[in-house]
Write a protein that binds this DNA or RNA. Structure first.
Lengths: 195, 195
DNA sequence: TTCCTAACTTGACACGGTGTAAATTGACAT
DNA sequence: ATGTCAATTTACACCGTGTCAAGTTAGGAA
């Protein structure tokens, strides 16, 4: 039973999260986060070794808070591959808006920061597993579209469900979350489910 | 007819291009480019206002050198939508490897640099037009898959053909250029061409 | 020859953001 | 009272970008 007031670490996470959302993951400095959390910039370094560690820890905090694991259960329990695919896409479509700020920030530094790259790849790897599970189920039922190997189908579904594509479609093509989910569900069925 | 030795500006472009390819668009400093071009770092600023302008100018130089415009002609001359789509994907699949270094560098700064963002969006807009042309031709023939509007089909093809997806598939999923082209061609046909 | 100009050089510096270091304070537990 | 822990303040080093000023070099025109 933690105190009613958030402890410092949680305040830092919340501040990071909010600032990243507000600024689309760009131009948020350590001093901004410190100010928003109500501590000094230097105190930030008492809790996190550096900027990338802060971002990585924030993603974990976000995942716990948003309850992504539980939300995935309906997909795991799906009776057939097609349903599993649909459910999985729905969860992702609802998850991306929650994480977009930090995800973009992580994406921006992952090319120069080894730890960030590892964190991002771990995230992407988890999504890939979800894709592979759905494709494998389809294949086992004999419902995977002809002429498509499991590997290639998984790769294709994985990029279709990438954060960057979601970003592009919702922010450049003006798709709503609902449109994203329904259009991508249909696209995935056309692409992977045998008629 | 220009002299046999490249003029300074061209040497800068070539150096930028090569360094960006070699380093995957990351960690290339102005001083590195200057050194590779055989001039002082400050002389770089005599030719380009700043780093982003240099990158933008380099993309234009690359596009001219690689002859992307001419390569697109077979797609424009295609007799039907399905062929147009196939040809377009082939050109893109062969183009991306040439531009990957600079593209990644531009991608990295486009969130903080207004000029870079504009340059990138202009590029992406051009690709989008190609996508729309192919989809429009399919639609006119009555060969666009049922239940898909031109707008949504264009958006989906556009993200399918994005640089980020190409990067993911070739570098994370170990697809060769040939595999990329043939798999994406098939995927596009499954997704957009009515049977 | 002399002069001019353009391209380029060297050296120094300001700025912004990250990360480090040292000394200090205030609260709380033993 | 003593120790410890969280946090504070001040100061500074590092890096890459971009700027500024003054000096050099080569070519062409008078």
């Amino acid at each position: 039973m933690s105190s009613v007031k958030l402890d410092t670490k949680s305040r830092i996470f919340e501040a990071t999260w909010k600032l990243m959302e507000d600024h689309h993951g760009q131009g948020v400095r350590m001093s901004d986060i410190a100010k928003a959390a109500g501590i000094s910039r230097q105190a930030l370094y008492l809790h996190f070794d550096d900027r990338s560690n802060l971002l990585i820890a924030t993603t974990q905090y976000m995942d716990e808070k948003s309850g992504i694991e539980e939300q995935l259960q309906p997909s795991r329990d799906a009776p057939d591959g097609k349903t599993r695919l649909r459910e999985y896409i729905k969860v992702m479509g609802n998850h991306f808006p929650n994480i977009q700020g930090v995800a973009r920030a992580l994406l921006a530094i992952k090319d120069t920061d080894e730890a960030a790259r590892a964190a991002w790849d771990e995230r992407m790897g988890a999504i890939r597993e979800g894709c592979e599970a759905a494709i494998t189920m389809l294949e086992a039922e004999g419902n995977l579209v002809k002429g498509l190997s499991r590997k290639v189908a998984t790769d294709l579904l994985w990029v279709l469900l990438s954060f960057q594509n979601w970003d592009q479609l919702t922010n450049h093509c003006d798709w709503s979350s609902e449109e994203y989910i329904s259009h991508i569900q249909k696209q995935a069925e056309r692409s992977f489910v045998a008629r």
